[in-house]
Amino acid sequence: MDAFTIDLLLDIASVIAFATGGAFLLIGAFGMIRLPDVWSRLHAAGIMDTVGAELILIGMMFQAGLTQATLKLVLISLFLFITSPTSTHAVANAAFTAGIRPVRLRKNEADRVIGESAKRTGES
């Protein structure tokens, strides 16, 4: 395999990563508009923050090759991988503590987790 073929393969890999990542970003952003309440929008934001962002970063890593830029991209993606669930959980916990409950809730087992304080924040 000569250098040209490897370049072509890397280009194809990053085009695939960019296309799927961009599609997930657009679907997530569309879900932010379409879904009915905060709790369901958390999942749309989860799509954008995890799969969309990581795929686009991976596509950039294919283009950067084995350089310092790839190392920095790996650091950024590791950081997003750890902090995005943390901030999503922070939003969810704040909404839960503020007494906001999902619309049309099918099943609620909150009493088994928080026990007594369930009465304080009110039911669904």
């Binding site: 905060v38 934001a45 939003v91 704040a94 909404a95 906001i100």
Partner: peptide
């Protein structure tokens, strides 16, 4: 709600 906005700022 506030939490919608915080989520949007984060994204």
């Amino acid at each position: 709600t506030l939490y919608d906005r915080v989520l949007a700022v984060n994204s």
